[in-house]
Design a protein around this nucleic acid. Structure first.
Lengths: 141, 141
DNA sequence: GGGATATAGTTACTTAAGTAACTAATTTTA
DNA sequence: TAAAATTAGTTACTTAAGTAACTATATCCC
């Protein structure tokens, strides 16, 4: 029962703050922000989506998704597609959106590759398990 | 060379988002937010501090600290103390601030204890090492 | 001593995410 | 089938963090 560094959680927060900061610097090349990347990435995988689908997948509240999608629309990276359910707003990537995805993917892949370069897969797996466990714990309570 | 789940970083971000969200719910009992807690915690440890000291310790930009300290001042949890250097704003906890620290500490300790309850210390240590390594990597580049 | 440089903090503006309360459309159910 | 409940999305407001540009003070050093 070793004693845990009291900074354990503080470090987690610091990491994610710095991570998004540095990744946003890189993503300027592709003309989008990290928050937009997450949605563009989702749309490339699943072709179309509603805001609620994105919200559930990313585990981010709906108003946040509304805003980010709105900015993607202004940049003409996504477009609306017809839907039977008049409440929902079903969207997909435009051609410009797909191009931006390709550019951003290279940036993100390279950024993440460099970060993980010389970490052992044991440590990475342990970390992944720990974080998964912590997320589950948070969602229970 | 196992392939890493592409959601590795996404999970990190999701964890910290949910963590601060849930902790903020708990901290309502003490009447402060997580961002304020970090500063109150620092002041309890080090007695006095300037905004730059706090900024460096928490690795958060100065304008963010200015704002959070301003709110702590409004709630009368901190007070200004004299300094020879007229540029700096040296602060310390008020008595009310110390009381809030005590309340918040119980909330935070219990919250973190429950989260870590049944995680092995191996996994925790591996996670801590990984995060430390990742932070260093981010700060190099 | 005085100009150049560095440091502490603030202001204005932006991105990101959250809550609460709402509208409009759809589905359930009595 | 009509009222009740649920679902999708938006609006308004708040917390949190960032950048750029600024003021005021202190330090360096020629």
């Amino acid at each position: 029962m070793t004693h845990l560094d009291p900074n354990f959680f503080h470090q987690q927060l610091q990491f994610t703050r710095t991570f998004t900061k540095k990744l946003n610097e890189q993503l300027k090349k592709a003309g989008i922000f990290h928050s937009q990347w997450l949605i563009v990435f989702y749309l490339k995988q699943f072709e179309t989506a509603t805001l609620v689908e994105i919200s559930n997948y990313l585990n981010v509240e709906k108003p946040t998704i509304t805003r980010t999608v709105h900015r993607l629309e202004e940049q003409e990276l996504i477009k609306k597609i017809p839907s039977n359910d008049k409440r929902e707003r079903r969207i997909m990537l435009t051609e410009k959106g797909i191009k931006v995805f390709e550019e951003a993917k290279q940036v993100v892949d390279e950024f993440e590759r460099k970060l993980l370069e010389d970490l052992s897969s044991q440590d990475l797996n342990a970390t992944e398990n720990t974080i998964k466990h912590l997320i589950e714990r948070l969602q229970e309570g």
